[in-house]
């Protein structure tokens, strides 16, 4: 694996909770500068996959490499280049917005981070809430704080689990712009979302999973060409329904 090109390598990754297999032998790569859309129905293993990539949970088997560092064997080096925006924007209730950014800066050992933090607050339109405590913020505002904290150390790998929930249209547009900018600078981004219409234009590649297994992977055109029954102008939503329905039939047979 060349860490200059491949930012994330997931190899034969399996996660089992008690006796339930949440993710089953999943393998994929994410190149630097790529935005991968991780899509699948509820309970398909998207959040588990992101949690294992970020080192929150260890894989039951298989490996996850971030810039060549194994997230289990060498977690600190692997996590140094990583940020995750969780599906639920859990913040520290007694810390202000600014203190969350300050905390992030401390954890990642950043110097002269203030200007960038100011810029992020402005970009996500929360400058006026910098002294607000986390529990005084709405869900959308909390999400914005979590996104700002994740962007602060300019991670090489950025994971976003349902990042659009609670965001207003302005914030969604700003987030897209920021993600595209980060990707151009070489960040590998993985976005998990149910809002297929929203992410289809953002992501350069997609990975459709169901019951913890990969059903389809590639660009929209590549997946479309693999699915014969679909018309040439099929949207991501059409592809998703077709792929997951075929998955159902395969499971049934």
């Amino acid at each position: 694996m060349d860490p200059d090109t491949v930012a994330v390598r997931v190899d034969n990754f399996t996660k089992v909770y008690d006796q339930r297999t949440a993710v089953d032998r999943l393998s994929f790569d994410v190149q630097r500068g790529e935005i991968l859309g991780l899509v699948g129905p509820n309970g398909s293993g998207k959040t588990t996959t992101l949690r294992c990539i970020s080192g929150i949970l260890p894989p039951t088997s298989g490996s996850v490499l971030l810039l060549g560092h194994d997230v289990v064997k060498d977690p600190i080096a692997a996590k140094r280049n990583l940020a995750i925006v969780a599906d639920d924007p859990n913040l520290f209730e007694s810390l202000t917005v600014w203190e969350h950014l300050e905390f992030s800066a401390q954890v990642f050992g950043l110097q002269d981070w203030q200007a960038r933090a100011e810029g992020l607050l402005e970009e996500f339109e929360i400058t006026d809430r910098r002294q607000s405590l986390a529990d005084e913020l709405s869900r959308g505002m909390r999400q914005k704080v979590a996104i700002c904290a994740a962007f602060l150390h300019e991670p090489a790998v950025l994971l976003l689990d349902e990042p659009l929930t609670g965001l207003d249209p302005h914030a969604i547009r700003n987030l897209y712009a920021a993600l595209e900018r980060q990707a151009k600078e070489g960040t590998a981004v993985i976005v998990s979302s149910h809002l297929l219409g929203q992410i289809s234009s953002l992501c350069s590649r997609f990975l459709i999973i169901k019951n913890g297994r990969a059903l389809q992977a590639g660009t929209i055109d590549e997946i479309r060409s693999q699915l014969d029954a679909l018309p040439d102008d099929a949207s991501l939503e059409d592809i998703f329904f077709h792929a997951t329905d075929v998955g159902d039939e395969t499971d049934a047979s």
């Binding site: 970020s54 080192g55 639920d88 520290f92 954890v107 979590a146």
Partner: peptide, 15 residues
């Protein structure tokens, strides 16, 4: 660990 601690500390480069 509180949900905020899991979200922010577990993926961070902390031993």
């Amino acid at each position: 660990f509180s949900p905020a601690e899991v979200t922010h500390l577990f993926p961070a480069p902390i031993s």
